[in-house]
């Protein structure tokens, strides 16, 4: 198996890991968004979706494990590659001219870090039960006063209804603003990543390259807009209790 570790430790190998894990996470993001957009179908639909997810049992843990591994691999590979990249140019240029001023590719690192930070916040904010932190941060976050805790430890959960959670959570302007900014970052990250991953895997075709690049940007934009619609709708009162 020496060849495998050698491959995975190579720059291209690490990029392959990033592409594959990125692909998994992109899949999740799209599914997650589609599910969440049920908020527009009303409280009943969203709450039913929420409890459906709660009740798929072990499968939920498989999914969570998969996502956590993908995230870990993505972040770890990115970290190694970034450190190597810094090492590859020990002396920086005094001035740098950008030939291809692509905002998308150049913000991958910052976007990635921002999304990572957001992720922590997001989990604490809307799914505090995972960490059993309902008495901690969740309790002091505005919007959770209506909930009560059921069970304890890892199996503890807040019982207040997903829909209510969403509406309460996003009624706070700065929280919504934070979400929207994060979604813009996520959209940009996807806009470059979804195209780049195919190139990393060598699965591109010069004839469809422009199409692929356009598709990636469109998916990114869709994710950013789709997800942002939820806090915006709450703020403008389109979605309410």
């Amino acid at each position: 198996m020496g060849w495998l570790s050698k491959f995975l430790n190579s720059n291209i190998g690490l990029k392959v890991l990033m592409a594959l894990s990125g692909m998994m996470m992109l899949g999740f993001v799209v599914v997650h968004m589609t599910g969440n957009l049920q908020v527009f179908l009303g409280a009943h639909a969203l709450d039913r979706y929420g409890s459906f997810l709660q009740n798929i049992g072990e499968l939920l843990w498989v999914a969570r494990l998969g996502l956590v591994s993908a995230l870990t691999i993505h972040v770890l590979s990115a970290t190694i590659l970034t450190l190597r990249s810094w090492g590859a140019r020990p002396v920086a240029y005094r001035s740098k001219y950008w030939f291809a001023p692509s905002l998308l590719s150049r913000t991958m690192l910052y976007g990635g870090v921002a999304i990572g930070l957001f992720l922590v916040l997001h989990l604490l904010h809307l799914s505090p039960s995972i960490f059993g932190l309902d008495h901690g941060i969740a309790a002091i976050t505005p919007g959770y006063e209506h909930c009560k805790t059921v069970g304890d430890g890892l199996s503890a959960s807040l019982e207040c209804g997903v829909y209510a959670n969403v509406v309460h959570g996003f009624s706070v302007v700065w929280v919504s603003a934070l979400y929207i900014v994060a979604m813009i970052f996520l959209g940009m990250h996807i806009g470059h990543g979804a195209w780049s991953m195919f190139r990393t895997l060598g699965l591109d075709n010069p004839r469809y390259d422009r199409l692929a690049q356009g598709a990636a940007v469109s998916i990114g934009a869709l994710v950013a807009v789709g997800n942002s619609l939820i806090p915006i709708s709450v703020l403008v009162g389109l979605v309410h209790l």
Partner: peptide
């Protein structure tokens, strides 16, 4: 270093070698 598909190389290349060679 590694490739992040920035495409700076392709634009700087005096001979127009296309990005596809990397994929």
């Amino acid at each position: 270093g590694h490739c992040s598909n920035h495409q700076e190389c392709v634009r700087a290349c005096p001979k127009g070698v296309p990005l596809d060679v990397i994929s």
